[in-house]
Design a protein around this nucleic acid. Structure first.
Lengths: 167, 167
DNA sequence: TCAAATTCCTAGGAAGTCCAACTATATTTC
DNA sequence: GAAATATAGTTGGACTTCCTAGGAATTTGA
């Protein structure tokens, strides 16, 4: 954990933007930069909690998604769509989860193009452990107040809808 | 741009969390996941704008920081602290900017440990072009309303302070 | 004054992102 | 029914992140 800076670097950047005549967009710039930095902090906390379980956030999300699937299995293309990552990111995550014994790949019974990812017993167990750890260490002490969380859900939900994430 | 999903996957995940008895942390989980996804969308937009200039966001931030420095130069350790990235990330970015002719590395006049990064004329020119493009294509059409931006700055500023980013 | 501790930066590596291109399979169109 | 088009997933690669470890230089403390 590095030493706190004496001043907020993003507030400083916002002032620099204003000073250079870009006042109109200084506040959105600061908001966007703050989102970048907040994501970085949260990801770091999440990875720290998952590391002892041999997981990363990308791998954990895959396991969690499979855990909620009724059959414990999904086509890789479906996982890509729901996790909103590129198919090659799914290939990467599944390669490592398969190597760790947490998932298996099986061919689709009727569609030769499609590979199903299926949770194994040890995958299900580690996903449950990871969820418990994240619930208590990260989500349960998020650093946001109740009304902050509501605001974030509202603001970022509308943003994601406008960005075409969902109908 | 993939096809919009029929429903918000993060709202679905929140309902799954509630259904599994983790209702207390479902909303913070959704807010955090929304931050992750929003960052991904914004980063993708930024990279798309910067790509024609031969820049990435990491490289651009370095150039912008140098642009605001009074002398157009900074020690690498200072850049690491202000950009809030690991020193090895600064090494990586500076390697590429140096190869592109946008910065130069010079030894510190009095401290043998320290390397100064200095903006070149072409680095300054590309940074100005990039800032103009980001201002009009990303920050000027951020996808957030004015009051959203204020809320984000407030909420994420407090979060970053509590996380120890600044005093 | 010198040893210990700290700072600065790099190298090698792991991880995950997406891009471009490819192969295999399925669907659509004529 | 065959060609064209679309879908699914992979491969190789570029990029950026941080981790660990190490070397060089500076600062600190006894």
């Amino acid at each position: 954990m590095p030493t706190p800076l004496p001043r907020d670097p993003i507030a400083d950047a916002q002032r620099n933007w204003e000073r250079h005549g870009w006042g109109d967009v200084a506040a959105p710039m600061a908001a966007i930069t703050a989102i970048m930095r907040t994501q970085q902090i949260l990801l770091s906390r999440i990875e720290e909690v998952l590391k002892p379980l041999g997981l990363t956030f990308a791998r954990y999300e895959m396991l969690a998604l499979l855990g909620f699937a009724r059959t414990g299995a999904l086509p890789m293309s479906k996982a890509s769509a729901l996790l909103q990552v590129h198919p090659t990111s799914v290939t990467n995550a599944v390669d490592r989860l398969e190597a760790a014994g947490f998932v298996t790949r099986t061919p689709h019974p009727t569609d030769g193009r499609t590979t199903l990812i299926e949770l194994t017993d040890s995958g299900r167990a580690v996903a449950e452990k990871a969820t418990a750890a994240l619930n208590s260490e990260v989500f349960g002490r998020s650093g946001f107040t109740g009304s902050d969380v509501e605001d974030l859900i509202r603001i970022l939900g509308e943003f994601r809808r406008e960005a075409g994430d969902f109908a």
